[in-house]
Structure formats: structure tokens, C-alpha cells
Design a protein around this nucleic acid. Sequence first.
RNA 1: GGCUCAGUAGCUCAGCGGUAGAGCAGGGGACUCAUAAGCCCUUGGUCGCGUGUUCAAAUCACGCCUGAGCCA
Length: 521
Amino acid sequence: MARFSLTTPLYYVNARPHIGSAYTTMAADALARFAALRGDAVLLVTGTDEHGQKIQRTAQEQGVPPQVHCDRMVAEFQALWQKLNIHWHRFSRTTDPRHGVIVKEFFQRVWDKGDIYLHQQQGWYCVACEEFKDERELLPERYCPLHPHLQVEWRDEPNYFFRLSQYQHQLEDLYQNQPDFIQPEARRNEVLKFVAQGLADFSISRLHLDWGFPVPVDPQQVIYVWFDALLGYLTALVEPDAEPSLAQATQTWWPVDVHLIGKDILRFHAVYWPAMLLSAELPLPKRIFAHGFLTKDGQKMSKSLGNIVDPFHLVNEYGSDALRYYFLKEIELGKDGDFNEERFIQTVNADLANDLGNLLNRTLKLVHKYCGGCVPAVTVPQDNPLAVLAEDLGVQVAQAYRELALHRACLLPLSLAQRANKWMDEQAPWQLAKTGEPATLAAVLYSLLEAVRLAAYLLSPVIPQTSTRIYQQLGYPIDFDRQPLLDYHQQARWGALPPGQAVAAPEPVFLRLGLPKVMKS
RNA sequence: GGCUCAGUAGCUCAGCGGUAGAGCAGGGGACUCAUAAGCCCUUGGUCGCGUGUUCAAAUCACGCCUGAGCCA
């Protein structure tokens, strides 16, 4: 059996989950579900990154110990993932003691390799970035350009450094030999440019901080949050009942097929992380895919603009299928995308309620009226336009998923539903019933049912609840949120619907969304 | 300052040398199986700006402008 493993980032728990994290996680979940649909053994890893000064200070401000703060945030993340119908297999927390074991072993390996050394570092430090900043990139009065409300702090301390510079050529070879290691192309170009300029060693420890794992060779220091966080991907792969070790972690699911990330953390994943793994002599992940950023009504989201989109609010208001569909179909993964509530509602209504849902509804009504509520037993002609369109739809959708082209993976099945609506009007089965052509009528209705079925099946990784309702109305006792137990190669093709199967009474599978009150007026 | 990506109908985008396309939204119509859905027709664009190459440019080259981003 083929294996497919992928990760979302381990989200930083300094705040409640935002729409960007939700976007990544929805995309990852759809990818994982599709792999599972095809029968692969799948492991979807998500989790949280909980160390670092910023967390320590946030907790302090709230007057709670850091661990309590982290536990609270983790509960929020998990609650949101549940609401969004995310099926994760491992939730990796960097404060897990098991993670400490992995970090220690990894550090030791890199240390033994001679890739870690002590060096006095001084400069301006941004606590929010957890990074040293060049004086000239600072705003007036030494505010961080990325965190304009925060002043940087002067630091002069010995830190442990990782010899990133040693790995420049190996990294360049990697990018060269494996052109799809970093995707999309534009992001790859950025990394190539960055690496070509020469790589500086980076510090992997911090002094005067106790929220983190101690440096094994120097307990005065704490391991830098990013070094720690990236290793969380490995810890996640340790079997739950096994003793944590790198050997264990890399036994089954490593290397992962995809690290799905936002473009803001590309450098850590495409440069630092592979270098760390090279140093530790571990295999590299197969692919890093960086998606774009979301805007709200064409504008950057920010607290000062007050236009932050709250994922909890959206999912409570509209449900998970609608959100998943909008974000995955309307925005090309890898490009920036916009959330506009009106466009969201229009899209979802047009596609899911009108084109797909209503197609099932109108067809079922006729099946009950003219075929006794059973899938008609007929032979559909080879040249049936729906059958022709469906011919290699499963293959095309699989290809789209392979490329992480989720928007195409949505568009393809939808186009079948759209063609089916058109064809239904052309055939006018209600007329066929009147003029007495039962064979033709049966073939038309069968084709329509089959078109909805296939579209629903191929869309199920994105809209599992809607697909489940469609399948159940078609007479299948299955739930895409549980093990579907259906053979992909059979279900992803035209003609899987068994003749004679009793169908349910038509019931809207996706209710049209209304505009929120504020927008109606 | 260097580099990357983008700028095409109200919105989201495709086209990437032969005088503009799709979906959604808007307008009209015929139908009736349907979640006032679907179907048909339709309004709508000096293809960011300028110069050049070419018989011919949204499509190539150069310059500029705007936006997003990477680096310094």
C-alpha cells in the first residue's frame, strides 16, 4: 500500500488560530482525504509550536504559567480543526516531553558532526520575530519593521551557532537535482536567489530564557524556538506507544511527501530545515509547498484596520463545507487570495446549492416519479456526453491533487455537474415521460444520477458532508467522514451506480446561504 | 537599490504572435423536473502606460507606473 504523509506548520500559540492557519489546514486535510480515498495509508500531521520568549511573555501578561497558556491555545486550535472537519492523525506539541528527547538526540548528532559552535553574538533582537535584526532595517527609534509596535532589545550574549554555511553547495545541488522540491516556482526562485548570495550560520540557542529545552551541552542556554519547532515534524512521526528516537521517527512516515506551509516561513523550511537534516544525516522531505496569503476585501488583514476575519465566526455562521469549498476552489493554492463575504456566498450558492445540490434534487424527483424510486437498469450509450466528460475525470482530478492544484480538483467535478444540468434541459426527461419513451428516459435519468454521484465522490475530500448527503440520497449507506470503504478505481469512474438501488426522497443537500444581515441593507 | 511574480469585462481568472474568452454578478426570454434553482439569449473590455520588432502584439523586446513579495 502506498504511503502519503504530510504536515501543516506547527502553529505558534501566541494567539488564537487565525484564518491563515485555517486555510493551510483545510488544504492539508483535503490532500490527506484524497490520498485516503485512493486507498493510500495517510498520516496528516499538525500541531503547535509552544516555546520561545514571545510565548513566555504572552503568558506573563495574562498572569498564567506558559504551559497553561499553551494548553488553552491548543484547545482553541483543536476546537477549530474539529469545527472545520479536519481529520488529523498526529497533533505535535513542542512542549511534549517526548519531543524533548528527539530534540536532544538531534542536537547531539549535529554536535558530534561538528556543526555547532559557540560564538558571541551582539545586536538588536526582536522578541516577536525571535531574531536578531540589522540596525539599518529597523524603523525609527528601533522599532521592528515586522512588528511596528515593538522595540527591539540590545543583546550581547554567547550563542550556539549552526554551520549553515557548510551546506550551501549541498542545498544548491538539491534544488538543482530536485526542481520540484520547492513549489510554486516563484517561491523556488526566491530561495535560489537567497542561497546563491551565500549562507550565514544561524544561532540556535538563547540565553536568559527558560521557556524551552536546555541545550544538552550547556544547560544555561535554551534551544532556539525554530530549531526546536522544525524537529516537531519528526517527533510527530514517532508511534504513540514507542520510545521516542530519531530511528523510530524516521522508520515509517519519514520523509514526508509534503510540508505544506505559508510563504512567510519558507526560508526555515526550504533552507534551514534541509541543512539541519543533512547535518544529522537524515533523509529530506520530498516537497515544500508554500501557499499564499489571504486578504479581506482586497486589503491586508490587520488589527489596526479592524478587518480580521475570524475563522470561528465563519464556520459557525456558514459551516465547514462552504468554507472549505470557497477557500480551496476560489483561490489557487500558491497564490494570494481574497476573502469577500459576498463573493463567498455567491460562489458557494452557485456551485454547491444550485449546480450540484439542485441537480440531484431535480433528478431524484423524476426518478421517484417515473422509475419507482430506484436507479434505472439501463445501458448508457457510449457517446453519452456525460459519460464522455466523465471518462478520465478521475484521472484528471488525481493529477490535480498530485500537483496540489486544489482549485482544479474542485473545478473538474463541478464542470460535470454543470454539463449535466445543461444536458438535462436538452433532453427534457419530463417531456420524454409524456411522449412515452421509457428507455430513453431511464438512460437520461441514470446518466444524471451517475453524474451527480461521480462529482460528489471526487469532491468529497473538499466537501465531505455534502458528498455524504448526496451518496446517502443515492442509496449508499456511507459516510465520507468515516472510512468510506469504497474502491477508488471503481467509484472514480463512470458507471459505478448499481442499477436497482433504491434512492431516498429528495432533500436539499446544501442549503443556499443568505447574506448576513449587515450586508442586506 | 537588485531581483521575482502579477496588472485582460463589476468580481475571480484563462488566453501568451494572427484583429478578445470563461465562470460568477447584472439585463431579457422560453420552459417547469427542481433549493425563485436549471436552460437560452444578452449588456459589458482603448487586454496598466509608452516606445520598438513584425505583414500582424493582450501575446515578443525595452522603458515606465501600480500592487504583492524576496534580498540588501
